[in-house]
Amino acid sequence: MSPVTAMYVAQAIHGLTYGMLLFLVASGLTLIFGMMGILNLAHASFFMLSAYFCYQVVAWTDSFWIALILAPIGTGLVGIIVERFLLRKVQKLGLGHIGDLLLTLGIALVISEAVKTIWGTESHQVLIPPSLQGLVTVAGLEYPIYRLFIIGLSLVILGALAFILFKTRLGMIIRAAVSDRDMVSALGINMPRVFMFVFGVGTLMAGVAGVAAAPMLTVFPGLADQIGLDAFVVVVVGGFGSLLGAVVVSLFLGELNSFGIQFIPRLAPVLVFLFMALVLSFKPMGFFGERDE
């Protein structure tokens, strides 16, 4: 393999890794938006919170694998509490979208400040577990195992999500609720409970992404800044509530980011927003969106 091709392949896999992480965060965001009409500004904060949980669990138990299970569950529980006691309340006030946006903005602020208060502002290192350290040679190209592990983990979660959504009764209810929640509610389904479940699962997935990212990016208060903004771009560009849009745009943004850094390092972060501005100017509902809320 020539060095140039190798570079392209390496960058592509880099982009795929980030795209997959992005998808884990964005899919929860888009599901929550599609069902509840809430653009959860605190979503990325849950990603960061989970990375901190991971750091803490690793510090206590010395095992990344336990953290991989416990941290997302803890994050999901925090998410459920937020939904049950805060979001549900603000939805009843009838402030419309502004109310949701502002409440989740407040939650994002509190989480980011709480994290700084508890764990400090310095960055913490989470070690890659020994079994995932090192490089693997695939088709003449060396690649870090850990990044491949992230891709695999994301695929497993993507599969599980697809199974729940398209093969189970619960998934049917969720898909129905995305298209018309009042009708689903009228059919006698306990919508608040479904909301709580979806919010919990959404934050749990952000949590998995947070744990997966922790060893790669180290854990620090600004951890969620980039992925959070990118996830919003994914949801907006992919179309509010569209899971397909989330997959496609996440992967595209991952590559855009990766090759942008390779070729125009100075303007790479701008590309994402330029892309979003362009899409929104011509398709205000995004690529796969059906309605504008």
Binding site: L39, H97, L101, L229, F232, V233, V236, F240, F273, M276, A277, L280, P284, M285, D292, E293
Partner: peptide, 12 residues
């Protein structure tokens, strides 16, 4: 654009 799309576009 209006609503959430406006919020996101201005954020961008």
């Amino acid at each position: 654009v209006t609503g959430t799309a406006f919020a996101m576009l201005t954020l961008a």
